[in-house]
Design a protein around this nucleic acid. Structure first.
Lengths: 231, 231
DNA sequence: CGCCGATTTTGACATCCGTCAACGTCTGTC
DNA sequence: GACAGACGTTGACGGATGTCAAAATCGGCG
């Protein structure tokens, strides 16, 4: 029996909308995999022969310069699609931030299946267009916002995206959540250093805008203030 | 008779690969438009009901903060697709940098046509995936590169993209070209100020890496050096 | 050719953020 | 429960880039 049928992201991932028999075919070429926190799924510059759907967990997409500077260029949550179909190979690594479960396909298999199923390609197109929108608004942040605005924007986005994922079906953004990022990783998302991130966090805490119950937890105490700071 | 048939981007834009009769249908819902340099095609935050193919010229995609800071989040060249199909509206303005000719569609018409023509959707998907790759590598630049590296990377990218467009079919990157950007617009692409851009340009000129025959013209004299600086 | 406004360059200075270094605090293991 | 190592915080300082201001140059137009 198809494992797709019981998949938790069944209705949100790009496979949504496929017929029962199509799903069986897709299921035949894919396989489930777990990735432990810190483990790589795709390495920068290997001609990544994998694509995947995220079932559970959070993964980062990163690019690096030769001298070791890193930039996180995307974050994949459950139901998100990972990898670069159709011939091209993009220079980004994919690394799990939390333990994760993914549904992987060989790129060739996926390419072939996609071309034969326009409905799937359409879903992938919509998802890619949304991701491009999100990425472009992140360019604004990277190019034009200062450290305080970056941190505020980041916290607001986290509270929204983690809520979408959460068990409780989207009763607005979460006011309290566990960051899937270390301080260094937050820095790599925002184009800052770990020290600047730390200082901005404590500043927001001292001003009563947020609370930091533990290293990885954040509670938003004054959302309007945070929105004002985000610019 | 279909104007598509004589279109200069006929073989490169997303309409490539359509059959004669499909092209006639597409032609029926689209119309040619000219946009003069500086003119807007789409405004930020109006629920842009347009999508378009670029036939000729260069346009910028920008987002702005309330206090007027601007970031150029994309640049569209001939054969590129502009706009946001499928329901969502992205917050970006599209403004012509040079006089341009575009082929515009109402979004509803285009959406309907695309859904009925998987080959077109596939082309659009490939293009969107490439654009996402490009945008992500630009995030690296914005987040992690210093002013000198930004300028060097920018000049190299310009020399490649303008060569693709040029009349002479891609004999490698152009060593001499006319920038479609003012200094301010270069700054808006790179997340810098106009002063920093100007200083870096003159520094490269003094070091003999480039020449600046006029305000808008650039000649790359020492490409290896420029590549080394790009990091 | 000569003028005008826009654009670009250059300079002096300020500041935000990165760098380097020391210290503090978690978390897991024995 | 104590230790070790990773991770995070704090402080002092410097430098790259932004800001403000003025001068120079370009390009269009009479």
């Amino acid at each position: 029996m198809s494992t797709c049928e019981t998949c938790v992201v069944r209705n949100r991932a790009i496979c949504a909308g496929l017929e029962r028999d199509e799903l069986a075919l897709l299921n035949a070429i894919g396989r489930r995999r777990t990735v432990t926190a810190g483990e790589s799924l795709i390495w920068e510059d290997d001609d990544s022969l994998l694509v995947a759907n995220v079932i559970e967990g959070v993964l980062k997409l990163t690019t690096s310069t030769e001298d070791g500077r890193e930039q996180i260029v995307g974050v994949a949550y459950p139901a998100d699609f990972i990898g670069r179909p159709f011939g091209q190979t993009s220079r980004a690594s994919v690394v799990a931030l939390t333990d994760a479960r993914v549904c992987v396909f060989s790129r060739n298999d996926f390419d072939r299946f996609a071309r034969e199923h326009p409905e799937l390609e359409h879903k992938l197109l919509e998802r890619t267009l949304s991701e491009l929108d999100r990425t472009r608004s992140w360019m604004m942040l990277l190019g034009r916002k200062n450290a305080a605005e970056k941190i505020a924007t980041f916290l607001l986005e986290m509270s929204e995206r983690l809520a979408e994922t959460g068990c409780t079906p989207a009763f607005g953004p979460a006011d309290r959540f566990a960051l899937p990022f270390s301080r260094q990783q937050v820095a790599d998302v925002l184009g800052l250093t770990i020290e600047t991130v730390s200082r901005q966090f404590t500043r927001l805490k001292n001003e009563g805008v947020i609370d930091l119950p533990s290293r990885r937890e954040v509670e938003i105490l004054d959302r309007p203030a945070l929105k004002a700071l985000a610019g």
